[in-house]
């Protein structure tokens, strides 16, 4: 349900010549900012998250697609995506609050990613090949075929992975490999992740972290 205020806001955006908002989700960024206070311990006040080498990294949420973020927090809430750090916080919020924080984070400016700084030239080149051209011999489809031009995201189902922390990217790929993450539509991601080896994971995560997110 869209509030009247929201409608007025949208039409005034249009009046001053702004393009349509990039989220389709029914949420309010201002309310989201308030609800997100509990999230900033890990995801930081600017939504930048943090790359934590040898530990559990916190993903950047700033500038991600709102519908995608909403789906993920709903999955944490429902237990179809499992993570001990994240779970209790997803459970703290109501459905409307989850919509609000998703819209809030999606509108924050993108922040820089970290991780993979020590990767060799060779590994970065291999990571670039996987991300942009894939390895069809092993049926590893290029990441960009799904994740969009520049791996910067395509619609609500295919999140941007460029400019995300390397530690988090690698964490997710491993989670798919060992079955800890299993919430992707049609197992589109699981099928790719399980064909990758540890070198692939490190190389592609390092390269992607160094690419622009938008």
């Amino acid at each position: 349900m869209q509030s009247l205020l929201m409608k007025i806001m949208i039409s005034s955006f249009l009046l001053v010549g702004w393009s349509l908002p990039a989220w389709a989700l029914d949420g309010d960024a201002q309310r989201g900012e308030a609800a997100a206070a509990v999230c900033s311990a890990c995801h930081q006040a600017d939504g930048s998250g943090q790359n934590i080498p040898d530990g559990e990294s916190w993903p950047r949420l700033a500038g991600m697609n709102a519908d995608y973020l909403y789906k993920q927090v709903k999955d944490f809430q429902a237990g179809t995506r499992v993570n001990a750090s994240m779970q209790p916080f997803a459970q703290m919020l109501t459905d409307q609050q989850l919509r609000d924080v998703a819209v809030y984070y999606s509108q924050l400016p993108v922040t820089p990613a970290a991780g993979g700084e020590t990767a060799s030239e060779e590994d970065l080149a291999w990571g670039e090949k996987l991300a942009t051209r894939g390895d069809w011999e092993r049926y590893i489809v290029p990441c960009s075929s799904c994740h969009g031009p520049g791996n910067q995201g395509a619609g609500q189902h295919f999140p941007g992975i460029a400019g995300q922390h390397a530690g988090y990217l690698a964490q997710q790929l491993r989670a798919w490999q060992n079955g800890d993450r299993d919430n992707d539509p049609q197992h589109l991601m699981a099928a790719i992740a399980e064909r990758m080896n540890e070198r692939d994971i490190q190389a592609v995560s390092a390269w992607l972290a160094q690419q622009p997110a938008n």
Partner: peptide, 22 residues
């Protein structure tokens, strides 16, 4: 050589069968 790698299914390091083999 390459053909064999296309046909012999990639298997995970721990030799678990793939969930989505090609």
């Amino acid at each position: 050589v390459v053909l064999v790698s296309l046909l012999a299914l990639p298997v995970k390091a721990e030799d678990q069968p793939l969930r989505f083999p090609v």
